[in-house]
Simulated assay, not measured.
Amino acid sequence: MTFRLTWHNLLNELEALPSDTTFVTPLSRTPFRITGVQEHRVLIKYRESSETIPLQREQFETLSERVVEAVGGFDLNRLPTDAEPYATILSVHPQFDVDDHEGTLAATDIGTATSLVDVDQDVGDDRDEPDLAVYGDALLLIDALERHDPTALDEMETPDLVNLYTLLSDVQRNANDLRQDVRRVLLGRLHHDQPVHGQYGSVQRTTRRSRTLKPDDEVLGLLEAEGIDRERVLSVDRNKVDDALDVTSLTETDVYDIEESEYVRKADVDEEVKETRLQGLKDRLATADENGTEDLQREIEELEARIDELTSFSSGKSLRSPSSGES
């Protein structure tokens, strides 16, 4: 297939999409929209910018040739940030496929739907309630924060403070469990320490280094072979000191500097009361009238707009030409 035919098929695919379709770049996950489809270029505008950026047909052709020639898919990390929208838009063509896990763009004989296009759904679409503990705890916490002023904690009654502390503790624990699950999946999708951006922030693959000493005899033997006296590296073992306190007249304060600090520990959670209150909140949400739903949607859209204004990522305009050594 010549690129002329590929190009016109791509333009047809783009024109068939709703005008409010949101696209995201494959690596930085920066959202943008198409503002115009022309014979020799596609006009885009990043969500956080008012600048219209033209994407030229010749650059699409260059990227298409590299993708077709690449064995195992074209590595998207070879793209400069400014060129990411080219890959997104090219993936709209059914014969080009983006693999988020491998970070590649490949030609395919099987028509595929791109994962980089988000067609806005109607406000009235049903939303599934996630079966997650953090979801219910977060609803209860939101309710508590709406009924009490968290900026005036000193004025709150003690039972209300206990409720707030309990819910905060539950949300923290369950959110951290979910965060670790999300982190495990993300690790398989992040490539080459390059930041990946979402609407609310960005993440980057990082390596943490930890050390654990090998068995004492092995370590001491190696050090002694290098002329290091074992007495120089031996330290007091707290467990052995505690054992010694049990069979001597020494007290804990003789061998330890002790500092005490007080803190609040969650002692118990009344799951039955939480479930009753949570069901009441869910019933209120389910029976909300249409006007209330529309008001909530407007508030969400206004909040997203404010977040977008505060979220700034670099935008791009052209596809970098390969060096003479690249294929």
Rank of each mutant, 00 (worst) to 15 (best):
V269K: 10
E302F: 09
E326W: 13
E275V: 04
L319D: 02
N239E: 14
T253R: 15
V119S: 03
E65H: 15
E58C: 03
E69Q: 15
A138N: 08
E231I: 07
R189M: 10
G201D: 03
Q279N: 15
K317W: 07
P159R: 07
E157F: 10
S312P: 03
L223C: 02
E155Y: 09
V68N: 03
P150G: 02
S323F: 10
E13K: 13
L63T: 03
Q199L: 12
I110D: 10
N176C: 06
S318M: 13
V264F: 10
A113V: 10
L245H: 02
P322K: 12
R41Y: 04
I300H: 04
R184I: 07
L5P: 02
F74S: 02
T212Y: 11
L296F: 14
R47W: 05
F3W: 08
T6H: 09
S312K: 12
V117I: 12
H101S: 12
T248F: 03
L63Y: 00
T251W: 08
L76W: 01
E146H: 13
T212A: 08
G103F: 00
T166G: 05
L168V: 05
E218S: 15
H192D: 14
D137L: 03
E48N: 12
N77A: 04
Y135V: 09
L281V: 03
N77K: 14
V119P: 01
L178V: 10
I300Q: 06
L319R: 03
R211W: 15
R78Y: 10
P18Q: 01
A87F: 00
I307P: 00
R127N: 10
N239S: 13
H93N: 07
G103S: 03
F60M: 03
T151S: 11
E129V: 15
S315D: 14
A305T: 14
E102A: 14
Q95L: 09
T287Q: 05
T276H: 13
V273S: 07
D308P: 06
M156L: 15
A305W: 09
N9W: 00
D181M: 09
D216R: 04
N174Q: 12
D268P: 01
D257S: 12
D120A: 12
E275C: 02
E260N: 13
T22W: 01
I110P: 00
L140K: 00
L141K: 05
V162M: 15
P195C: 02
Q121M: 15
V264D: 14
L5N: 15
L190C: 00
L250C: 06
